[in-house]
Design a protein around this nucleic acid. Structure first.
Lengths: 158, 158
DNA sequence: CTTTATGCAAAGGGTTTGCAACAAA
DNA sequence: TTTGTTGCAAACCCTTTGCATAAAG
């Protein structure tokens, strides 16, 4: 993802806020910048840390109040990984249809895309009387390549 | 799902417990029976309620302590629907590869299976160096049929 | 008997919220 | 100004846990 891509995403979010009557504050600007300046997944707490590096006045409450707005734009997504903290994925902004492969051994997450899967999912949903929207696919498994070579060569996002 | 299916599932769970050195208590028996006597999804609290109808001495703590055991057997699964309470799905015992279609309007959940999807997912995982395990696919959308007719005819589980 | 399980109630911990002070527009 | 936003800290609420008692084997 280039710097220009990042800027464009951030502008989209700020425009969304403006057009929804939300005010553009320094704190929100910092949170948006922090949210889309990385391709790593993060928790609310981690986003708070990175936003504070941009504007130290950002509070935890504001992060928790801003996250739902970012999710509403569709450019950020919750990962619903399980029990503990919610994890956020900023890569939907550049890869709207990516999926996740999770290693049950090392917990590493690999992102991938597949057009065939997208088409089949869409057809199935329509056959069941649905107009499909957000699709969340997560495959858990053992990462053999990771076990052998120490890394996965097929990752979409590094 | 027949009564015989239910009994067989419950026996499998109890056998799993026994072979793992866990004791077969009345409370656990009640929880297991409650967990697999329905095809509806449920929360821990709802499971507590139904287990108490079988054995009123069941406590919330025991339900929370027993649920992870049921999940370990692979016959019950957490749905990871989002923020609030965890939701459990007992239908993996009879339909190990089913997926979920969720209506964003009415929140109704429809279960479906598709062999093509299963195969493609498996191939993709292997190509990425993974030995695939649990697959979780959730499609959110608007249920047109539901909107028109008041119900969905294509549901796997009623 | 020995060991594991239970119920109770308190503690945990991520997320939400009430409120007075504060900034956008 | 007017109205939405912020930070703080307390409240929430689901889930986990410590402990004395009870029951399985």
């Amino acid at each position: 993802m280039t710097k220009k891509d990042q800027d464009s995403i951030q502008e989209k979010i700020l425009a969304y806020m403006e057009s929804n009557g939300l005010r553009i504050t320094n704190q929100r600007r910092a949170i948006v910048e922090a949210a889309f300046s990385t391709t790593d997944h993060y928790t609310a707490e981690e986003l708070l840390d990175s936003a504070r590096k941009i504007d130290p006045s950002v509070s935890r409450a504001t992060v928790y109040r801003t996250l739902p707005v970012l999710v509403q734009t569709g450019l950020l997504r919750e990962l619903d990984l399980g029990r503990d903290q919610q994890v956020y994925d900023p890569n939907y902004a550049t890869h709207p249809n990516h999926n996740h492969l999770i290693c049950v051994d090392c917990q590493k997450i690999i992102e991938f895309e597949d057009y065939c899967l997208d088409v089949r999912e869409s057809v199935l949903a329509k056959n069941l009387g649905f107009r499909p929207g957000v699709v969340k696919l997560r495959i858990e498994g053992s990462c053999e390549e990771l076990a052998k070579t120490g890394s996965c060569s097929k990752r979409l996002v590094h």
